[in-house]
Nucleic acid binder design. Structure first.
Lengths: 207, 207
DNA sequence: ACTAATTACTGCAGGAAGTGCAAACTTTCT
DNA sequence: AGAAAGTTTGCACTTCCTGCAGTAATTAGT
């Protein structure tokens, strides 16, 4: 499952002018959003401001991103690729369920800022402007549903619900952690570590 | 902590006409919001519609509640009472931290729909209209900060962060659970149970 | 190279959430 | 009754976001 090419195989093909321009404007918007939010905070970085910074019309902005947060994240929405879904469903039952969920979610989150945008920039914004966390969580809600659907193929609905909640909580904790040097290591690892620490805290709280 | 009266003690005193009217309009708005959201879903229940259902102006609506969700919940915001804070800080250290957090959060959530509104109504809306969950979580974000601040008095910032994240995840799971008969029992108990189950899932996922 | 079909960009009109301000109205106090 | 204090309302305004229709740019066909 390592070398699956999503494009129709026959040579990477020169990306057309159109394609290049699309990437260009999307990147422009994304970078402008990142820059302005970093400088002024989410509240005081209006979509209009981002648009003029990026040199596009407001309408174009919403052609690329459905919301302000999504522009900051650099993704119209979180999506599960076929490869990711297959990898997750390869194993069955509850064994490694939580670990696999971490891998899945980590992989999905890693899709942010692909097209040549400095990943450090997005990390900075997330850690410096924590007010954005609730919006991001809300933004990820749609994804959550999809993941629960997948998890339900490996355990009961009830436990699937809780397992996913737990992993999403790990994401949440990532957004609230101060500064976050750990964001550099594999996000998946980081998530799993968070889950394990939570588990430990819960257990210790009992004796 | 069972029989603590929040009012200044000296006789319950006849609530003035003004006070009664305020409660009346707040209740009217809350009930209208509940009713319309239950019928049409969050998306299709506009604030304007809620206002005319409740017989108040739009402006008055926002005098009572800062947002649509807050009107559904029936609270301008989640608040920690002094009694609750004191009860939480009575114990020290990590022992029972998670349990105490569940009690704290459970108590806070229990403040919804006090003034004679059928609690069943709000439960119904939450379980029938799950799309509202992300908004509620976002609504509770402010509270989250306050709770973390409290938790930090009993453990390290890092572990406080994670412990609170875990308990908030339990709330999240409550919002996503199908139908939820358990909402009837003490919410606190329910939260703790969710945490424990998550802990179990995480642990089992390892062996 | 010129035309035709796609596809992207833009403006405009408008809906919905939410805020500040000042006028109008109600309850309360003296 | 009249002043003081508090509540409700209308109005103008900002921001996010969507549908629609027209324009402009890219690409494909000849």
């Amino acid at each position: 499952m390592t070398t699956l090419n999503p494009t129709p195989v026959p040579a990477a093909a020169a990306p057309s002018l159109r394609e290049r321009k699309k990437v260009e404007t999307r990147t422009a918007i994304h970078e402008a959003a990142l820059r302005l939010v970093a400088e002024n905070g989410v509240e005081h970085a209006s979509v209009d401001a981002i648009c003029s910074e990026a040199g596009v019309s407001t309408r174009t902005f919403f052609n690329y991103f459905p919301s302000k947060v999504s522009a900051v994240v650099g993704l119209p929405s979180f999506v599960i690729t076929d490869a990711q879904r297959d990898a997750f469903l390869e194993r069955d039952g509850e064994r490694w369920l939580v670990r696999d969920l971490c891998a899945l979610v980590g992989g999905i989150m890693d899709a942010t800022s692909r097209d040549g945008v400095d990943r450090q920039a997005i990390r900075d914004v997330l850690s410096r402007r924590k007010e954005i966390a609730p919006d991001i969580i809300k933004f990820a809600a749609e994804l959550r549903r999809d993941i629960v659907a997948l998890a339900e193929r490996r355990t009961t609905p009830d436990r699937a619900q809780l397992a996913v909640t737990l992993v999403m909580a790990a994401v949440d904790s990532a957004l609230h952690r101060p500064l976050d040097p750990a964001f550099d290591q594999e996000f998946t690892e980081w998530l799993f570590e968070a889950v394990m620490t939570m588990q430990a805290i819960a257990r210790e709280s009992l004796d």
